[in-house]
Amino acid sequence: MSFEALDIHKSFGDTPILKGVSLSVAPGEFVALLGPSGSGKTTLLNIIAGLAHADRGRLVLDGRDITRLPAGKRRFGMVFQSYALFRHMTVAQNVAFGLKVMEGARRPPRERIAARVGELLEMVELPDLADRYPAQLSGGQRQRVAMARALAIDPQLLLMDEPFSALDAQVRQSLRGEVRALQKQAGVGAIMVTHDRAEAWALADRIAVMDHGRIVQFDTPDALRDDPATESVRSLVEGVA
């Protein structure tokens, strides 16, 4: 699935947050939105997810305009910064949610849902915790459940908002690799919002550097290093490479 955001504008009141942002994700590609807080990256992600509406601009998925499509119809898997697991549901129920709420004809039968949930929990290496509640899990485990829940709906695009920021450094390191592996395995394009450049460099095929509501440069990590578009990108790169 290829995805494109074209010339997205968004303001809150008189404050412009996004000033004409364009972004593309090739099938299976991992794109990082890198920028300081206030650069508009989370707003952009929410617009892509359908949780906010752009003032201007278009969203295109495989040539189809999805700008006006409601969030639930986009089938984009989203991993929230706080994970946003349903507190009153077990791990298995959380992962199954997206399948259970599918409308009549598309909803898989109960056994198929159970099998799929088992498969996903196997994938995120939590098969024994199916009956736990989120309150009984560690931060890293919650993150994996959030990942499994987002992948359960067989998403057309995976969206992640600072997925590692609530974890301690050690867990963060080990989970990075796992998330990338899961994304590759699912063969789904991904957009990750982060303010951590090391994270962007470690995970992304291409990085969109955002600043003050614009994308300053959108390229591979190597190209960002070899040919930084602005001083700010250069100073950003020097820290990592």
Binding site: A49, G50, L51, A71, G72, K73, R74, R75, F76, G77, M78, F80, S82, A84, L85, F86, R87, F97, G98, V101, M102, R149, I153, L159
Partner: peptide
Amino acid sequence: LDRDEEQAALTLGATGRQ
């Protein structure tokens, strides 16, 4: 209530009633 949970439900395709 955690608003993020509602947004998560929304992205997972839940209708208002669900």
